[in-house]
Write a protein that binds this DNA or RNA. Sequence first.
RNA 1: GGGGGAAUGUCCCGAGUGGCAAAGGGGGCGGACUGUAAAUCCGCUGCUGUAAUGGCUUCGUAGGUUCGAGUCCUACUUCCCCCA
Length: 418
Amino acid sequence: MSDPAFKSEFLKTLQARGYIHQITHPEELDEAAAAGTIAAYIGFDATAPSLHVGSLIQIMMLRRLQQAGHKPIVLMGGGTTKVGDPTGKDEARKLLSEADIQANIASIKTVFAKFLAFGDGPTDAVMVDNDEWLSKFGYVQFLRDYGVHFTINRMLAFDSVKLRLEREQPMTFLEFNYMLMQSVDFLELNRTRNCVLQMGGSDQWGNILNGVELIRRVDQKPAFGLTTPLLSTASGQKMGKTMSGAVWLNADMRSPYDYWQFWRNTEDADVGRFLRLFTDLPLEEIARLEALEGAGINEAKKVLANEATRMLHGAEEAARAAAAAQAAFEQGGLSADLPTHEIPAGDLEAGVQLADLMVAAGLAGSKGEARRLAQGGGLRVNDKAEADANRVVTTGDVADGVVKLAAGKKKIVLVRPT
RNA sequence: GGGGGAAUGUCCCGAGUGGCAAAGGGGGCGGACUGUAAAUCCGCUGCUGUAAUGGCUUCGUAGGUUCGAGUCCUACUUCCCCCA
């Protein structure tokens, strides 16, 4: 993609920090963003009770938008989730019940307030749910109003459809309609809220393009689309799924400590990129951190972990996570802020099989796994390797009020008798 | 409606002759090396249990044949392809 020198603060920032993959009408959009306040939206589907770091780049982009003096619109996909986005999938995802979707939305909502300022002002963020309008259409009315603007010929050419067909995987008519719904969302937001820009991940390009064209065709009004690059780590892993599963943003699904660890374990080659995308640090500062070599780059990773955790969970939680990590990894000591598992003191007096304790503490999925861990040398009790998972843990193992269990070098749980 | 094909280890892909806890890969986990990195190398990867042989539950669903079935038979479910 060409590299035009943008005039608007917003696009300049996105460009400099690496958010831009494709833009539909770069110059026009730049003009609009430079001339005054614009409104832009990103849609989030409610397929899980929390968003994960895979969505973080989108959230951060809304933050940049607001920082540049524009209005972010968070679109919750209450309506579209009922249909399910086929993009990038080989199979239709199982349909969620309406109750599940509503519960997911309620749970997801809270995260946005950490990144955006909501309110009624001209550049305050707002949240809307597309179920509001999508559920109101009658089938025939929807077909007549919008169906006429989409040709099957063109829809078949979009990757989301084409790839599925090429791989000879079935695509239901329900899924086929998803891109129409998303296009109508954009049109609706354009009409009711004067929203001129839809942003999203690069996999959304086709869906976004359809909305842009719908607005331009039906209302003869300007509309733009912008996508972010697909985020993967330097070694090619998909971003967001790691060691212990998805990196959720909700604190009750992924603790601040684990969140901090996630960023701390960033690959060397990704540090600069992630700092630009996921922190508010000035670019000069990032350039300095990124230039650190060898083990020195660990400093940059700590900064990244601190900043990212602070933004999501607050300064206090970030500091505690950092302190716990320092105690555990750099001093080999204990910290009360490490993940803790409580068990009745009586159980420990009676003695608990180590394998059972590992499972209870969440360090092993089954006793068999605990055994294998032990045999592989990855199980440690109070920092001492323990090859026998059948060993009984008793009060004699308590030191400083806890028993320190570790699975591998990074997963630590303090067992605290109560 | 007719004809042909497919569903495999609760992450994915994928081999499978009647003796299979089931090849191989990806992913994941652990170890070594390092810097809580990457790359590389080694080990593990159904549950349960032992000092150890073991026990139990898995191959779309339900039955059947057999000493023994992922593998053969019957019905059913879902999906794909071709014809109408």
